[in-house]
Write a protein that binds this DNA or RNA. Structure first.
Lengths: 331, 331
DNA sequence: CTGTTAGCGCTTTCAA
DNA sequence: TTGAAAGCGCTAACAG
């Protein structure tokens, strides 16, 4: 791994000049700076944050200490990761990618502050991942595919899951099935849409016209989009939501309008988050293995660190969870 | 802040010997080791984890990268912390205290890996907190009171909250009110119990006999304890739970027995977690400010770091949230 | 068993 | 504008 020293040698300048250049201390001439930057890029130089923090005697980071990192919607997933990591005697810490390029996440991916990373986040640039991954720093991606050395992807068969869900609805006699989703950036959601469309096509139905993709994948947006759908009139008899959160927003919207689930409209979610079983009606949804994926992710990190070979792609399958939000279509 | 050098000087040995002793490299004689340990204790020596990681070229820690640290039951709280931290240009990372003395949390509290900590966790030894806090490393404690320099506590008026909840139940005509709680280690829960008891006493009722304290403060235990209560017969007309999670476990137990809430029994929780509004019946509970407490915690860190004075104790008040799990007692 | 010493990779003062 | 050099706090090879 290249250090500041290597960059200095390659650029033909001193270490201190490199340090100044890298930290934008205006006193470096444009020309030297350019040389240094080029060298750094060529060597794929990555700063050692520990060394710089040690020298500066400051980390500029705050820890928040919780009893258990599990607890969020990805609770089960984190639990799997946590148990494996702990059993290996490693530490686990969570950081977020809010802030994009300057986020804590990017800092941890690029500054040798940790020995490996599991990424659940979709707003991390692919380049950063590719640049950072190496044998001593494996990166595991969840719900996202990037093809590069020392990065392995773990996905869930979203297409199959949605296909299955749509077919189930069709079996229940539904013919007019809408799909409510957000702006899909990640592959995750394009796969879900694809599963929906392929099922409808297979049964000679038209999905395209009933596809609503806009905004975020959260409750609020599920709520808004459902209200829009209601306002347009001509309600479908069933709605698939891109995920449970959006579906739960939808339930709220229908409740406000006095539209009954499932007698007036059937709905189905995706993920099987904890809340899904508590909302009324309990949400029928597509479950994806969580604990197992987390545990696998952690295992893979250690396998790579130990120099063992792994596949570079894993796919888990999904399962329909029948609860109370879908009803057979009355003729 | 004492370093390994200071310890060496004080113990009258070389730094390498100190390093060996501190890391249990068996080759150090019992006597020297004792001298070193004593010196370390006297100087309140704390290892610099960055330096050692830098030297060893390994951190033995894995990062898990999430879109947003908010998401768990403490979602709102974390959100408050996150926004303030980000606005100051600091990084925020979460780590857990599972593993007790050897947990990641302890490592971060004691090894200068971060510049401050906000502790939401109750299983962190008070001594560790007192030893670690200093001007350059302030510690903010939530729901827990420790009196020491550079540690500030932020509590919620739990006693008032429970007192209020109990009085509300009494107003609704309830006379037989049970309290279900876990083994209280922290002050948090003794305060809650106290609020309950003081309200009952004030109205000439006996709380003692109806107090059930056992096990953890989670759903499973709420479920079990409720079932025990049912099995004993002689059900109270109202139950207060130490927190929402336990109350939700209780709801599940009652459902299994076909006992209706609130017509057969009224229940009330504490915290107002997200789930509380979704369970059926929606849970009446005591709300505590979350976002505000988080934001305050983060602000305090920076105030202390900047050398400003702060109070060493803050208390927020609570508010009753009326939903559907309490009913007026029919005569 | 203990001490000397060379660095880990970086920042920053001081001198050129 | 650039470079030399000291040193952050620690570990570990080596010598004694």
């Amino acid at each position: 791994m290249a250090t500041i020293k290597d960059v200095a040698k390659m650029a033909g300048v001193s270490i201190s000049t490199v340090s100044y250049a890298l930290n934008n201390h205006a006193k470096v001439s444009k020309k030297t700076k350019q040389k240094i930057m080029d060298a750094a890029r060529q060597l794929n130089y990555q700063k050692n944050g520990l060394a710089s923090d040690l020298k500066k005697n400051s980390t500029r980071t705050i820890a928040i200490i919780v009893t258990d990192l599990a607890g969020p919607h990805y609770a089960e997933l984190v639990k799997g990761i946590q148990e494996v990591t702990l059993s290996k005697g490693y530490d686990l810490l969570a950081c977020s990618s809010v802030g994009e390029e300057t986020s804590t996440a990017v800092k941890f991916l690029t500054e040798k502050r940790v020995d490996g990373a599991i990424v659940l986040s979709h707003n991390i640039d692919e380049d950063i991942i590719i640049q950072s991954a190496r044998k001593e720093f494996p990166i595991i991606l969840l719900d996202r595919k990037v093809d590069s050395d020392f990065v392995v992807s773990i996905e869930v068969d979203n297409e199959e899951g949605c296909h299955m869900a749509a077919e189930y609805l069709i079996e229940q006699g539904h013919r007019d099935i809408a799909f409510i989703s957000g702006n899909s950036i990640g592959s995750l959601h394009v796969q879900r849409v694809r599963g929906y469309e392929s099922a409808l096509r297979k049964h000679g139905l038209d999905g395209k016209s009933r596809l609503h993709q806009f905004g975020l994948f959260n409750q609020d947006n599920g709520y808004s989009m459902t209200k829009m759908l209601i306002a347009q009139g001509n309600l479908p008899t069933a709605i698939m939501y891109a995920n449970d959160e959006m579906a739960i927003g939808g339930i709220k919207a229908f409740k406000e309008y006095g539209i009954e689930i499932p007698s007036d409209v059937s709905i189905i979610g995706f993920d099987d988050i904890e809340l899904a079983q508590y909302v009324r009606p309990a949400l029928t949804t597509v479950m994806q293995p969580k604990y197992e994926r987390g545990a696998l992710a952690a295992h893979l990190i250690f396998q790579i660190l130990e120099g063992q070979d792994t596949q570079d792609y894993y796919k888990f399958s999904t399962q329909l969870v029948l609860r109370d939000s879908v009803q057979k279509r009355k003729e």
